[in-house]
Design a protein around this nucleic acid. Structure first.
Lengths: 181, 181
DNA sequence: TGTTAATATATGATTAATCAAATATAAGAT
DNA sequence: ATCTTATATTTGATTAATCATATATTAACA
């Protein structure tokens, strides 16, 4: 499961709590790669401990509730390195809009265009989110190795949105010219 | 759930059995929009009958096992029309390769490139599959309304693969030039 | 003093999807 | 005669993800 390995990767960057993972990773950049909710994160942490891939230390805090800080064990590090080299299957995409459009011939043009316009808004918002993430450009020679990797990932996310946006615009044009019924 | 509505749409095109849905829809074009396995299809058919959106007639066959043929009811047709006009959320994409790349700074360049090369092969295969689907082009004026919709959907699938392929090529170039460690 | 917000973790229930396998009929091939 | 293939449906088990909610501590605010 990739979520487990994503968490392993994040904990290898630095030790964190479940709360940290949620608020500073899975609510931020990682949300674009592998969204995960809080319940799943805490449960996956439990599984990783069971597996022996991470270990937990309770940090007592005076001013706030105590934290369970997790860090990667030697065996966890080995597992991550192993997994990082395994070829993974293509992701499965299930896009409700495509199903709608596939059967949209029975809708009036205006209704179809409304669907596409709404997606266009949502996609533009997502593109803006991705473009707001600050990372050195691919041609920036001062970028560290991990920044290059992260920028590369971000570039796909951005390109993906741009492709979708272009396609939506084409779709709107095409439908506008269609004879109804 | 979109699977239910996809099935509703397919049954509105013509009455079909679970087997038909699997072999001539979910193994073919629809596989690129909304993959579904056989167990899920049959179970969803049961749910749709319970809802009263489709009805079932058993067709006795002499030469082959009997078929349960499903067709859309009036209430099913209404439900489909309703659903087709509801704005749907953006699909959630979880791509394991992006997680790998995000943490790939600890891998040697050759290992990263191997990951990307393998995805490139898989993506090219998928692109070829999409391009093999026969549908009139968007500028073809003899195309029927439903063919236009289906071509539009296919165009996104194709563009999506092309975007991914371009990105993979860029990625391979960038990683090749990276200093290791 | 009581309320809300932020920090922090845990659990129950449900849905959607996947995997595996069982069952049955008949045609066609070896 | 047996094996395979295609047709056709059903069920059990499990995983991954989501949703809702519960619990606890402290700070800040009104």
């Amino acid at each position: 499961m990739s979520l487990a390995h994503a968490i392993l990767g994040l904990l290898q960057q630095e030790e964190r709590t479940g709360y940290d993972l949620k608020t500073s990773c899975f609510n931020q950049t990682v949300a674009h790669l592998w969204p995960a909710d809080q319940a799943q994160i805490y449960r996956t942490l439990d599984k990783l401990v069971e597996q022996g891939w991470i270990s937990c230390t309770v940090k007592i805090q005076r001013d706030r509730p105590n934290r369970k800080v997790y860090s990667v064990t030697a065996s966890g590090k080995a597992e991550l390195t192993r997994w990082l080299q395994c070829s993974q299957p293509l992701p499965i995409v299930r896009d409700p809009l495509l199903i709608q459009l596939y059967f949209a011939d029975q809708l009036p043009n205006a209704a179809i265009i409304q669907l596409l316009e709404q997606q266009l808004i949502a996609r533009r918002e997502k593109l803006a989110e991705c473009e707001n993430i600050e990372l050195p450009m691919l041609n920036d020679k001062s970028a560290s190795r991990d920044q290059v990797m992260q920028r590369l990932v971000l570039e796909l996310a951005i390109q993906r949105e741009k492709t979708y946006i272009d396609w939506l615009k084409t779709g709107i044009d095409i439908i506008s010219c269609q004879k109804e019924e």
